[in-house]
């Protein structure tokens, strides 16, 4: 526990920790992304129903998962920053928002690129698509509110409340949309077959890991910069700056 707090609560330690580990992160990302792309695009067999069009799920599913996962991370860090007033949590929350929004955007775009050949339209008011669209709006609202408040103290706190309120509403929105959808349309269309061949599954898992790693890399990059700015008066930051020039 003590080691943990030393790593994550002392800015300098945190910075060192991140810079020490980021080459490994990048390596792992390139590895998993490379395997996922090559295996997913070349070696995985075509789906017997959807043909080669199914390969879009190799980017669609990871984006959708990350879109939801990042919002969960944002809410968790929002709670931590409200309750324990830890600066690092606030930073993670604030950095995650635009990244999460871009993953949500990707999920929408790739979903619609998948939908056109499969359903014949770019968009249907399917429960899953609609929920993701609303998630995208929640992200945008979070970013917009943060951008509109100038006082940093109030901004962080209001943003944390926004994240929490949005999170509470996600299940409400999801179930109401699901219910609304089943009332108005027939069966919902599913992306996967329930059982998926391992040669299709492994690239997918690899892509999911790659996307998550990419999120971590971006997070670390921005976190490092923000920590430097926050501690700009400390001696160790000045030293690092000297090393950089």
């Amino acid at each position: 526990m003590q080691r943990l707090t030393r790593y994550f609560l002392v800015p300098q330690q945190c910075y060192r920790f991140i810079t020490d580990w980021s080459p490994w992160l990048t390596g792992a990302f390139l590895l998993t992304l490379g395997y996922g792309l090559i295996a997913g695009l070349c070696f995985a067999p075509a789906d017997y129903q959807q043909g080669d069009g199914f390969r879009i799920i190799y980017v669609h599913v990871p984006s959708a998962l990350l879109a939801m996962g990042i919002y969960t991370i944002m809410t968790t860090t929002a709670l931590i920053s409200l309750v324990f007033r830890i600066k690092l949590a606030t930073l993670v929350m604030q950095i995650s928002a635009p990244i999460g929004a871009s993953f949500t955007f990707l999920a929408l775009i790739t979903g619609s690129l998948w939908g056109k050949p499969m359903w014949g339209t770019w968009w249907i008011w399917d429960a899953r698509l609609t929920s993701v669209l609303i998630l995208f709006f929640l992200y945008l609202a979070f970013i917009a509110v943060r951008a509109a408040i100038s006082d940093p103290w109030a901004r962080d706190r209001i943003a944390a409340w926004m994240a929490i309120i949005g999170f509470i509403n996600i299940p409400i929105i999801h179930y109401s949309v699901l219910w609304w959808n089943t009332l108005h349309q027939g069966a919902t269309l599913t992306v996967f077959n329930p059982s998926i061949a391992p040669s299709m599954l492994y690239p997918l898992l690899s892509m999911i890991i790659a996307f998550a790693l990419f999120y971590l890399i971006l997070l670390c990059q921005r976190l490092c910069a923000d920590i430097l700015y926050q501690e700009r008066k400390a001696a160790w930051v000045q030293e690092i700056l000297h090393e950089l020039t």
Partner: peptide
């Protein structure tokens, strides 16, 4: 397999 217009843009 005919899906190039969708897969590659994605």
């Amino acid at each position: 397999g005919g899906y190039a217009a969708y897969v590659w843009p994605a």
